[in-house]
C-alpha cells in the first residue's frame, strides 16, 4: 500500500481527531457538572445528597474502574509490542471489569428508583441521574466497542490498523476513568460529606 497519506500520518491525524472529540466530550461533562453543582441543593423536599450516597459503594466502583483502566493500558502496550494473545486476555479483563462497574451502577440506580427516588423526584435527582447516567452510557458504548475490537482481533492478523484501533479505544477508556475521578469526588465524596 503506497498511499499518499502514509500510515503514520493517518495514525497521527486520527489520534489528534479523536483526542479533539474527547475534548468536546469534556465540555459536555462540564455542562452537566455545572448543572449538577447549581441544582445539588434543589431537593424539593426529596432526599438530599448525603441521604442517598454511600462512600464505600463509590470507592468499590472507583477501584474497579481504575483497575480496568490499568488492564486496558497494559493491553494496548502489549499489542504495540506484538503480543496479541496476552493483549486480548487483558482486554477481556477490561471488559469484565467494565461490565462489573456498569452492573454496580445499574444496581445503585434501580435501588434508588425502587425506594421511590426517581429522576422525577427533584431537580437534584434529575441532575444526578443525568450526570452519572451519561458516564454510564459512555461506559456502555466503550464495552460494545471493546467487544467488537475483541472479535476483530480474534479474526485478523496483527497490523498497524489493529494497533491504531486499540490505541483509540485505550484513549477513550482512560478518559472515562478521568471523568469518573471527578464524579467520585464531586458527586459522591462531597455529597456524603455535605
Amino acid at each position: 500500500m503506497s498511499h499518499s497519506v502514509t500510515e503514520t500520518e493517518k495514525l497521527d491525524n486520527t489520534t489528534l481527531g479523536f483526542w479533539l472529540y474527547l475534548m468536546t466530550d469534556i465540555m459536555i461533562f462540564a455542562s452537566l457538572f455545572a448543572t449538577y453543582l447549581v441544582l445539588v441543593n434543589a431537593t424539593a423536599g426529596g432526599p438530599s445528597a448525603s441521604d442517598i450516597y454511600s462512600a464505600d459503594f463509590a470507592l468499590l466502583q472507583t477501584v474497579i474502574l481504575l483497575t480496568s483502566s490499568f488492564t486496558c493500558g497494559v493491553s494496548a502496550l502489549l499489542l504495540r509490542r506484538g503480543k496479541k494473545t496476552a493483549s486480548m486476555w487483558l482486554l477481556l479483563a477490561t471488559v469484565v471489569l467494565g461490565a462489573a462497574f456498569l452492573a454496580l451502577e445499574v444496581f445503585e440506580f434501580s435501588t434508588l428508583v425502587s425506594e421511590g427516588h426517581t429522576w422525577q423526584t427533584s431537580a437534584f435527582l434529575s441532575a444526578f441521574f443525568t450526570l452519572v447516567g451519561t458516564h454510564g452510557l459512555h461506559i456502555s458504548v466503550g464495552l460494545i466497542w471493546a467487544i467488537t475490537l475483541l472479535v476483530y482481533m480474534y479474526r485478523t492478523r496483527i497490523g498497524s490498523d489493529m494497533v491504531r484501533k486499540m490505541m483509540l479505544f485505550a484513549l477513550f477508556w482512560h478518559f472515562l476513568d478521568i471523568i469518573w475521578i471527578f464524579i467520585f469526588t464531586i458527586v459522591y465524596l462531597m455529597g456524603v460529606a455535605s
Binding site: A42, T43, A44, W119, Q120, A123, S126, F129
Partner: peptide, 21 residues
Amino acid sequence: SLDRLMGMHFFTSDMGGNPMM
C-alpha cells in the same frame, strides 16, 4: 429534552428546577 421526554426537572418552575440555568 429530558425534561420533556422523561419528566425531569432541570428547567421546570417546580420541584427545584431552575429555568435561569
